[in-house]
Design a protein around this nucleic acid. Structure first.
Lengths: 136, 136
DNA sequence: CTAAAACTTAAACGCAGCTTTAAGTCAAGA
DNA sequence: TCTTGACTTAAAGCTGCGTTTAAGTTTTAG
């Protein structure tokens, strides 16, 4: 299987596959005439990488996830630490999104006509102050 | 008020303030001896920019938000269109985060020991397929 | 055999939102 | 007056995740 076929099968760009290889997510396949030839199950691996990426994991996290995938322990326990951390991150995102949504809905009813008044009201809002404190 | 004081007051880097000016978020202030001098209410404006940025708006969105802030219409209605769109975005984020969380929790109980088995199970999961279809 | 499609590489580019650097100018205290 | 710290600029650098480009090689269809 050449890189272009793999790319079409996984619905991404061939250059992305080379990039994954460079990042250590994919092993360098054997070559014929300098061109990469992949085994059929490379599709699975690439799809798994895409899944994880779509799930919000960085490529270096995915590299950790995939490392040692062939040893005999089940996948779940090995992923536990990373997955637990990610779940916490997601919960933080959830909480933040909820706050921002209610904040925006609140702002939609704002009747301020000047910057000062608006900001003063913002500054007095406990919700906003707690959001402000979260800023980097 | 010099740029350093403004920066400390708004708890960010002076270079960020110059960057905001370059992006059109802050008007160029008058200068003394080549140095920027800001009116006191510049702090409010910078804080408002930080708020909006922390809320997940891009600088170009914020520019739109702030444009015409001095005319006589209330702030709320002017922001309505952008805010409505942002709320939709946030809701999409919320939905996605919830899906990913339950997906991860599911994966934590995965007992697969090989990549093929794991991916095959993933591929059979309706949840995962719907997630996959969302990928760019 | 030839033309076109697919492959190869390294390196540059793109995004956003800044930060850092380099080299120089200005301001304020002792 | 001198020193130090704060300011000025333009341009480069950073992060992550690729995409694009340029120039060249290999494979494949006709």
């Amino acid at each position: 299987m050449k890189i272009g076929q793999l790319a079409r099968a996984a619905n991404l760009n061939a250059s992305a596959i080379r990039y994954y290889e460079k990042c250590g997510l994919l092993a360098a396949p054997h070559r014929i005439g300098g061109q990469r030839r992949y085994p059929v199950d490379a599709v699975h691996r690439v799809l798994l990488i895409r899944f994880a990426s779509d799930m919000g994991f960085s490529l270096s996290e995915i590299k950790l996830f995939l490392s040692g995938l062939r040893d005999n322990t089940p996948v779940g326990p090995r992923w536990k630490k990373l997955a637990d951390r990610k779940i916490l991150e997601i919960e933080a995102t959830l909480e933040r999104s909820l706050r921002l949504k209610s904040l925006l809905q609140h702002l939609l009813h704002c009747r301020c006509t000047s910057l000062q008044v608006c900001v003063e009201r913002l500054s007095l809002s406990p919700t906003l102050r707690s959001l402000a404190r979260r800023s980097k």
